[in-house]
Simulated scan of single mutants.
Amino acid sequence: MKHNFLLSVAFLLISTISNAVPKVTGWAPDAAYMTNGNLDLAKGGTPRISYTFTREQVNGVYEDVDMQLVFYIQRNGQNYESAPVYITNSNFLGDTWTGNDRRFIALGTSQAGGVLRAKYRVRSQGSPSYGPYMEISKSLNVINGAINPPGNPPVANSASIYRYYYGASNSANHFYTVSNITPGGYTFEFIEFYALTTQVSGTVPIYRYFDSQNIDHFYTTVSNNSTFPNYAFEKIEFYAYATQQPGTVPVYRYFSPSLKNHFYTTHYSPGGYNGGYYYERIEFYAYQGERR
């Protein structure tokens, strides 16, 4: 199994006039995960990322921009990236916006070493595409190896359901599995929930399907895929409750038409999520994972 780590960061977004380049400065991992100035992956834990964005006025006007920030570990010529932090212009009230979130750096391997870096890209409000990524000059050496955390399954015959993320310029895939091995090209984010590995009273199989054309994993209680013919059946991934039981929470299903991607979460957002995800339904009930 692998431990992938969250970073606690604070950074500053300065937005000037439309032909200027917004800047990001001042990120740092939580001090508890540092050893002699290095990011120490052996320390474990899941610190929350905190961040503050500010921007400047020029001639009394703010530039309207959206932004993505990505942290990554560079090792042996390969980059293992976090899921992006998305900031939209609507997040700002005046010149500042503050928040916190969880972001794992996906190591993709239990090897030690590497360098932690960060990059970001921006787009003008309303533009269909972002500009190229800009590197932030700061970097930190990474020491010791890591494995994804085992979690704390709450009941007998339950297991951690790991959430992995794959993102490209025009597609995305959220992958949920009992496997603690990060798939190639994916980022380990966190344990979204706990589910059963064997069927018990009140539970139903959760069938895993995959659309290879759009790179989308789809999880459902429906055993017949005739209503979604583009999806090929892969396996029963786990078992979950069809109705809410003591100690369980709803797992909500969202879908993004633009990304052609399904997204499952224990956090309900009536307005949907960034990326055009809108709410579809409660798919099943499971035990709360490590995300709170």
Rank of each mutant, 00 (worst) to 15 (best):
L93N: 14
I161H: 07
A83H: 12
S127R: 08
P154M: 04
G113M: 12
Y164W: 04
G77E: 03
I143A: 13
K138A: 14
F92D: 07
F188K: 00
Y130C: 05
F92A: 01
L93E: 13
N152Y: 09
Y186M: 13
P149I: 09
R121C: 07
E189D: 15
G131R: 02
R117P: 05
P84A: 08
T182W: 06
T98F: 03
Y120A: 07
S110H: 05
N100P: 00
T177M: 10
I87Y: 11
D101A: 13
N89C: 01
V122W: 14
S124C: 00
D101P: 02
E81R: 08
Y162V: 07
V122F: 15
P153Y: 07
N91L: 11
T177K: 03
R121N: 03
P154S: 01
I136T: 09
I143N: 07
N100Y: 08
A172N: 00
P84S: 07
S171V: 02
R117E: 06
G151K: 07
N76Y: 10
I161E: 01
T187V: 02
T182H: 04
G113P: 12
Y176N: 11
N170W: 05
D95E: 12
F190C: 11
S129P: 01
A159I: 09
N89Q: 11
D95A: 15
A168C: 02
S90H: 06
G108S: 06
V122C: 09
S171F: 06
E81Q: 13
S90Q: 13
S169E: 10
N79Y: 09
T177F: 00
T187S: 15
G113D: 05
S179H: 00
S158H: 05
N89P: 00
G108W: 13
I143K: 12
D95T: 12
S129N: 10
S137F: 06
G77Q: 02
N173A: 11
S124W: 04
N170Y: 14
A83C: 06
F188E: 06
Y86M: 00
Q125N: 08
R102L: 10
F104E: 11
P154T: 04
I105A: 13
A146N: 12
G167I: 04
S110M: 06
R102T: 14
P132Q: 11
F188I: 00
K119Q: 05
R103F: 15
S158R: 01
R123Y: 01
N144K: 14
S90K: 10
L140P: 04
S137I: 02
P154N: 03
P150L: 08
L140A: 01
L93Q: 14
T98C: 07
R163S: 11
V142E: 05
A106P: 15
W97E: 09
Q111R: 14
N170S: 12
A118R: 10
D95W: 02
I136V: 15
S139K: 08
F92M: 12
E189G: 10
T88P: 02
T109Y: 09
N180I: 03
P84G: 08
G94Y: 03
L116H: 10
N157M: 06
Q111L: 15
G99H: 11
F104M: 12
S110L: 05
T88H: 09
L140F: 13
S127L: 01
D95M: 05
